[in-house]
């Protein structure tokens, strides 16, 4: 019994925007499951009352002054674009609006 179902693997691939073949999904199911088995060692650790560490540095309030600096030229901004038109990045049609 794998720790993660094929349906979950498919859902995660969708969230991650990865197009994968059925074969690749099946291999990933096995790999993810064994990795999660390995991670299980810490999932069970008692950590009640332990604060999470998101960052190794105890820094706060790193701010920059509101002073304009140089921008890229439009042609440099678009130089690496797979497709561009009218000074903009061109993409295939968008289904669905931004959430």
């Amino acid at each position: 019994m794998e720790r993660i179902s094929l349906a979950e693997v498919r859902h995660v691939a969708q969230l991650a925007r990865l197009q994968l073949s059925d074969e690749e999904l099946a291999v990933l199911q096995g790999e993810l499951s064994s990795l999660l088995d390995h991670v299980e060692a810490i999932v069970a650790l008692p950590t009640e009352g332990v604060a999470p560490t998101a960052h190794p540095l105890p820094l706060s309030n790193v701010l920059r002054p509101d002073v304009p600096g140089p921008c890229l030229e439009q042609r440099d901004a678009l130089a690496a674009a797979p497709e561009a038109a009218e000074g903009r990045f061109l993409v295939p049609r968008i289904l669905g609006e931004a959430p």
Binding site: V39, V43, T47, V50, A51, T53, P56
Partner: peptide
């Protein structure tokens, strides 16, 4: 949980 374990390591 991994972030809390990170605290334990620190």
């Amino acid at each position: 949980q991994a972030q809390r374990v990170r605290t334990l390591v620190v």
